[in-house]
């Protein structure tokens, strides 16, 4: 596989000696235009990698905040096509920041896998996380996506034991997303000590960078994770900022302000 923007970014960060700040925001939330502004503003606010959520009516692994974000996005007319358009628009001004599409399989299946991969490539997507495609379903999207040069990023969780880990790692690339708690997005904050133990175990099985997410809300928490992981993922806390007021312009500012705060936390941790 040739190097993707994701691979390059992690290599650069390793040289720089710090962890990646991985942000998650929902396409089309609160509306398509504001979401584009948020995504465009994130790199300057410190985001190293941007996960763009693809809304789905039935997000079975998400907590209330991301469920609501998805519903707002659907209400604003967001589709898979419009999500790709948003990313293509972002790419016009940023050819460096990696973009990961994150969502559930049905909208992609409905769009058609081949057509999706072609259009995702054209839009400038680098990797994808599809929550309801475990390795048992690799032939659906993971293998064709890999063949088309995308990173297929997989989730590992506290329930992913040593016997299962190799299955999860097989065919995954870019980075491994360690879900720090058994639960839905936005639930309890992870205990850094537990995460450290888990990461030690996982590192024995892979050289992939490991980003840790679920439950990180503040710069201080992100800094704790940055000490032990190659990246910290923040989603729910950012998405919640969107919902705090009714003015969509303010939403853009609130999301980017919080991103800056968390970014500072991550950048305060220097690694050797």
């Amino acid at each position: 596989m040739s190097e993707t923007r994701i691979d390059r970014r992690f290599r650069a960060l390793k040289a720089e000696g710090r962890a990646a700040f991985v942000t998650y925001v929902m396409a089309g939330d609160p509306d398509l235009e504001s979401a584009l502004e948020i995504v465009k503003g994130l790199p300057a606010a410190g985001a190293d990698i941007i996960e763009v959520g693809l809304p789905f009516t039935d997000p079975m692994a998400d907590g209330p905040a991301i469920q609501q974000a998805g519903l707002r996005a659907l209400a604003s007319g967001t589709t898979l096509r419009k999500t790709l358009d948003l990313i293509a628009e972002f790419r016009k001004t940023d050819d460096e920041t990696p973009i990961v599409l994150m969502g559930y399989y049905n909208p992609i299946y409905s769009y058609g896998v081949d057509r999706f991969l072609k259009d995702a490539r054209a839009a400038g997507i680098d990797g994808m996380i599809v929550v309801d495609l475990p390795s048992e379903e690799d032939s659906e999207l993971c293998l064709p996506a890999r063949a088309a040069g995308f990173n297929f990023i997989r989730l590992a969780t506290p329930t992913t034991n040593d016997r299962r880990l190799p299955k999860v790692l097989a065919n995954s690339s870019g980075f491994l997303y360690y879900v720090s708690i058994a639960g839905t997005t936005g639930a309890a904050a992870p205990k850094p000590a537990d995460v450290a133990t888990a990461l030690q175990r996982i590192r024995k099985a892979t050289d992939l960078p490991i980003a840790v997410g679920f439950g990180i809300r503040t710069g201080a928490q992100a800094a704790e994770i940055a000490k032990i992981a190659d990246g910290a993922v923040v989603g729910t806390a950012l998405v919640e900022q969107v919902a705090l007021g009714s003015d969509n312009k303010d939403a853009v500012k609130r999301v980017l302000d919080l991103a800056r705060e968390i970014s500072a936390g991550i950048r305060s941790v220097k690694k050797t």
Binding site: D132, R154, L155, T157, T159, N161, V179
Partner: peptide, 19 residues
């Protein structure tokens, strides 16, 4: 693999797979 023709399968989050 848990399929009836093209139908069925195991489309769940990784957390649930071991169980």
């Amino acid at each position: 693999t848990g399929h009836f023709g093209i139908f069925g399968g195991q489309f769940v989050a990784e957390t649930l797979m071991p169980l």
